[in-house]
Simulated scan of single mutants.
Amino acid sequence: MPTRIAFLGPAGTYGEQAAAALVDLETISDPEFVPCKGLRSVMDQLASGDCGAAVVPVENSVEGGVTAILDALWIHRELCIRRALVLPIRHALLSHGSLNGITEVLSHPQALAQCSSWLAENLPEALQLPTSSTAEAARMVAGSRFRAAIASRQAGVEHGLDQLAFPVNDVPGNSTRFLLLQRGERRQTGDVASLAFSLQRNAPGALLEALGCLARQNLNMSRIESRPSKRELGEYVFFVDVDLTAESSSALQELLMDLQPLCEHLAHFGAYPSSTLNDT
């Protein structure tokens, strides 16, 4: 049976690029790629068992964490992370028209934000319209001479669009970290481990006490992000990434034991390798 892998579609998205690269890195045989409309649908396909894996963006170097994915991970704490991939993001402006005739620019909200300065300088009067994905924007502008999409050059090839400008992202080093998610047993070794927790008490020093557990185990916290618990104002969930070495797997287990009594809920998404795709 093929392994069904959900990703944010349609064809030509950065998610599809990441999914193809992650499948190669994990040597998943006979994959079947399942494009989904919306990140929630991607997560639901995996959580329901309709797909055996999912590839999702979790963090962008310009716009920060992808909140929809963080929230979904907290809901589906049974899922685990198998591998991470950092993908360079190079946006193109695509259309069937000319640059001076563009009055509407379509793209995913994150992509529009990542190109906001370029748009303000080059298309200040153009209306910016959000779409469910960059590739969906490319599909929607096909055949139009007054609409343009911000998407990958691959999306332009998929939909026969002309490249009006490239790159149009404001930050040259723009990159997004994608995760390969699955159900099942968590790995205990890798380059990174990802945790999420809510605290037993909302009191001065409570978060400091929790983070002190990392210091005692001599583990470096490479990322921390908070999200509302959605239960009451002022209550948060904390997402933490911890750098690992070959010798620190035992320290990770000690960390989880230290954190447990301080947390109302503690989710361990596993340890996993992380790679960076070369910018070609």
Rank of each mutant, 00 (worst) to 15 (best):
Q154W: 13
E16S: 08
V86E: 10
S249R: 01
S198L: 05
V171Y: 06
P172D: 07
A206P: 00
L93M: 04
A246T: 14
D241E: 13
L199W: 09
V237H: 02
W118K: 09
T276S: 14
A148N: 10
D24Q: 15
D30G: 06
R201I: 13
S175R: 15
L119K: 04
S95P: 00
G234E: 08
P57W: 12
S198G: 01
L244Y: 08
Q217H: 13
I75M: 07
L199T: 10
S250M: 05
L255W: 11
G15S: 15
R231D: 06
A11E: 05
P124R: 00
V105S: 07
E125P: 04
F269R: 01
G143S: 07
H91E: 02
L219E: 03
L195S: 07
G15C: 12
K230G: 03
G212K: 02
V34L: 09
D24L: 15
L256W: 02
A215F: 00
S41A: 15
A113I: 08
T189G: 00
D258P: 00
H76N: 15
L79C: 12
C115P: 09
L85T: 07
R177P: 04
I28D: 01
E16Q: 15
R227I: 10
S132M: 04
G190L: 03
L207T: 08
A135G: 03
T67H: 04
I69A: 12
N122Q: 00
F238T: 10
L127N: 13
Q110T: 14
S222C: 03
S274F: 05
A11P: 07
M140N: 09
A251G: 04
C51A: 11
K230R: 15
E16P: 13
S117A: 15
S275A: 06
E209C: 03
T13G: 11
D30Y: 13
S250R: 14
L211E: 00
I75A: 07
I89T: 11
A72Q: 03
L8I: 05
I89A: 05
H268K: 05
G64Q: 03
S41L: 13
S152W: 06
A142I: 04
P2E: 04
G190R: 01
Q260D: 02
L99D: 07
L207G: 02
P2S: 14
A138S: 04
S226I: 03
S274Q: 02
V56I: 01
G212N: 04
L127K: 06
Y14Q: 00
R201G: 02
Q260V: 05
V171P: 09
